[in-house]
Amino acid sequence: MTSMTKEMGSSSIGESKKKIVNSKAAKEPQMVDTKEERESAAASVSLLDKIQLKIKKMTAPSAVQSGEYFGTPGAGDSRLIGVFSTIFFIAIWAIATEGGFIKPIFLPSPVDVVQRLIDITVDGFAGATLVEHLNASLVRIFGAFLLACLIGIPLGITIGCNRVFRGIFDPLIEFYRPLPPLAYLPLIIIWLGIDESSKVTLIFLAMLSPIVLSARSGVTSVRIEQIQVAYSMGATPWQVITQVIARGAMPDIMTGMRIAIGFGWTTLVAAEMVAAERGIGFMVLNASEFLVTDVVIAGIIVIGIIAYCFDLLMRYLESKLIPWKGYN
């Protein structure tokens, strides 16, 4: 009897405590409101203080909504805010340029850029239309990407699984990985000439190291229990590598692929600096030489949009191929 009453007593206390905490969390913002009003009524607060208070309110953790956990950093949907901020920046851009505050040679107006985008899509620029430029660049990037995946993923897994391979390839990869692609571009041109192969090779090399390293670290992230259990079910070493390790390394490999594509876009412009006749990077470079700023900006926007779309595609693939990521 006594223990039961004790338990009941303690549980009801616990509940009431919870209620107090909840009501506090719900009331806090209101209390700040009233304080602010009181203060502003009592004494004329300076504008700076007011702004500071507003910022404090925006960054302070708000009351817990249903379906959310208290204290989750950055909880909530930010897409609508993203749309507004994009519109806001374009508006500032438009005001600054259309209002004549900035010369078009430094920053053309959004309308000019869109107009130019249509022009180069229809009539072309520097000897080819936008689609042709884009096509040339995409073939280079995705050709290099495919090659980097085909070579990098098996290589990384082999390095992770085999002492001898690790010994052979580790020094090589660790040496060339931090080098900027521009540093070894001249060498590649000497070796391969100035045609397509040197461009693809440069992008390929930039993409290879993140893929190899991610595949390698993916191998070490596979739990030893998973490997041992597979052996205990009669797996051969080859089966363990292909059916356990390679699959278990997928989350890391996907991350490496995303990073690699990013590297690819950065290296693209460098690759297309050399004797290219087509390519989105070449188009931007060519435009900048003739100070055709609107083409430069149009090109940058196109690269940005395509890179972003590819990242969205990769995220979608991640959710389909490795849905267990984040679970224990």
Binding site: R223, E225, Q226, Q228, V229, Y231, S232, M233, G234, V244, R247, G248, M250, I322, W324, Y327, N328
Partner: peptide, 19 residues
């Protein structure tokens, strides 16, 4: 001499294949 299919193992946790 080594692990084989004649001895099945169950660990405390985390040995299932999530894919």
């Amino acid at each position: 001499t080594g692990p084989d299919a004649d001895r099945g193992v169950v660990f405390q946790k985390h040995a299932l294949l999530p894919w």
